[in-house]
């Protein structure tokens, strides 16, 4: 495999999945082209200004900033459905429409759903 697409469709902090996806994506940067796709409730990870100190868990937005070379795409229709259109989003992310999102999946050698 030369490229991998991690698909995240669950909200951050509700389960370990978002953290797991970020970690797996980060280690995969070593030797592969990595894309992390946020879909469905996964798009909540795109919101800026996350503060997880009271939860006692790592700040997931910070992990996105730390691994700036990780390509993260956000499924726009999911953002629109959740009325996140007017929210401030993390600036390193790329917004993609339905077509581009699926093109990115198809263009990757493998798809890993967490």
């Amino acid at each position: 495999m030369k490229s991998v697409f991690y698909l995240l469709d669950t909200a951050p902090y509700s389960s370990e999945k978002a953290f797991g996806a970020l970690n797996a994506a980060a280690v995969s940067l070593n030797g592969m082209n990595v894309t992390l796709g946020l879909y469905g409730d996964g798009v909540y990870l795109a919101a800026a200004g996350q503060d997880s100190r009271k939860l006692g868990v790592p700040n997931l937005a910070d992990i996105l900033y730390a691994y700036g070379e990780l390509k993260v795409i956000v499924h726009e229709p999911s953002l629109v459905e959740r009325d996140l259109l007017g929210e401030t989003l993390i600036e390193t992310l790329e917004l993609t429409d339905e077509e581009d999102f699926f093109e990115a999946i198809e263009g990757s050698d493998c798809l890993i759903l967490l």
């Binding site: 991998v4 970690n23 995969s28 030797g31 592969m32 493998c110 798809l111 890993i112 759903l113």
Partner: peptide, 19 residues
């Protein structure tokens, strides 16, 4: 370590994820 996952993927011809 998790790096093993990355190693496995790099050397694979097919990947299946069940989740």
């Amino acid at each position: 370590s998790l790096y093993e996952l990355s190693e496995m993927l790099t050397k694979s011809d097919r990947v299946i994820s069940l989740s």
